[in-house]
Amino acid sequence: MRREAVVLLAGLLWALGAGAQSPTAASPPPDNEMPSGSSVYAKPRPPVRLETREGRLVRPGDQVDANDALDEILDEFAADIARLGANRVSPILLERVRVSDNMNPEFASILEARLVSAIYRAANVRVVRCYECYATHAQVEDGAWVVRRGISRREDLQRLMKKYNAQVVLNASLTLHTAPNALAFDVELVRAEDASIFFAEGYRVHPHTALLYRSADKVQSREARLKDLEDRINAKPHFNHSLHLGAMIIPTEGHPEGSIWAPYTAYRFSEAFGEERTWRLGGTVAGLLSPSRMVGAILSATLLSRINKENVYSINCFGGGSVGFLLTGVQGNSPMFNAQAECVMAHRITLQGSLGILVPFASSTDSTYTIGGLTPQVGMGFTW
């Protein structure tokens, strides 16, 4: 009996040892490959957060976070409240904050909290919540069961304003557009005395540049287009004038002193045309003065086109060319062709450069050398 127990115990220990040394269970997969059926879960990278510096969005990439754009909108509205003055609007009765149908309705409460927080940061005003504005009321009138929600009569508004001791009622609506992506925030302040609209504004975020603008900006743009259309109908031209100062290098061949360095002064007048008035066509009169080498003038026709879209916040650049004639009187005359570009840095100061070809001609005073070739020029101008 004892012998059988010893044999059984030895067999059990051998089986356990063999199972622990199984190559399939303990050995790693060959070439560090993952076993079949395994999965890899990578933690998603956090989105790039934008920084706000002095009220301007700093964009490190091509995308703008909607939360940052919404913060800019709310801060702009809060600044308008501060400009209106606390004695004219405080306390403010917050009637209703709505969001568009393509947004989560629960976001309205978050928007309300962020709106009130922005107002408190910018202005010394009080904001009062209107509980009756969200409630549903039912009563019997002339034998009929009437159900109302919120403020439905002027008398109710005046009663609530007196109850809360408020001056204006605030209504706000946030709309999300998806084609293209854009945010629109519309607000309205209503007086309690006569139910007249005290303040109304719409705030928009441009879908590509994240530029914050108001509905009044659109009105001004339409007004400018209407005025431009009236000018076209009345045949009223849009002229541009500019005065340039710079230097030009005129190559020479066979002269011991080499190329001619000549300061120049140029006046150009042009007319803007095209559907968006992006083209400019006009004439240029320039004078050259190199006392020891050359005194002359350049008459040319110039055509320029806007390179980038018009933007009051950035540099506006134009490119084009000119065809003209160099007149020196004694030394000779020759045609000249230029490719030129210029940039208006803000509104008046202009940087200008060109690269032209002056058809070579023999000097009338000294036929041993010729004048002409590749003629670069640079300068600075004043535009009005």
Rank of each mutant, 00 (worst) to 15 (best):
L374P: 11
G61S: 03
R49D: 04
G19Q: 14
S314H: 12
R149P: 13
T136Q: 07
N240V: 15
V168R: 09
D75H: 08
N102R: 02
D31K: 09
Y264S: 03
S36E: 15
D228E: 14
S322C: 03
A113I: 15
Y120Q: 02
G202P: 07
M380T: 02
R348W: 09
G372R: 02
V125S: 05
N338G: 01
E132A: 15
L288K: 00
V190W: 10
N181Y: 12
V344N: 12
V116A: 01
Y164C: 03
Q167A: 03
D217M: 07
E193M: 08
R126E: 10
N311Y: 02
T365V: 10
V312E: 04
A172Q: 07
F382R: 07
F269C: 10
P207Q: 04
R225Q: 12
Y164F: 08
K309W: 01
P207H: 05
W145M: 10
V7F: 06
V147L: 11
R114Q: 05
C130N: 06
L351D: 03
Y213S: 07
G353K: 08
G283K: 12
L74E: 01
L304Q: 13
D228W: 07
A224L: 00
T52D: 08
D31Y: 14
V169A: 04
Q167D: 03
E132M: 12
E4T: 15
N165I: 02
T383R: 15
Q167G: 02
Y164V: 05
S364K: 14
T375S: 04
N316E: 06
P28H: 05
L9E: 07
L245M: 14
D194T: 00
R88H: 06
M294C: 01
A69N: 01
G55S: 09
P256M: 05
L189G: 01
M336D: 12
H208R: 15
C343G: 13
A78M: 11
R153L: 05
L281V: 00
R2A: 14
I73M: 14
G329N: 00
R268S: 08
A113T: 14
Q158S: 07
H347R: 13
D71I: 15
V7G: 11
S221M: 15
S152R: 15
L288V: 08
A122D: 08
W145H: 11
R88P: 00
L94Q: 03
N87Y: 05
A266M: 11
V146W: 04
V127W: 01
L189E: 06
I260P: 00
V99L: 00
R159L: 14
L50W: 05
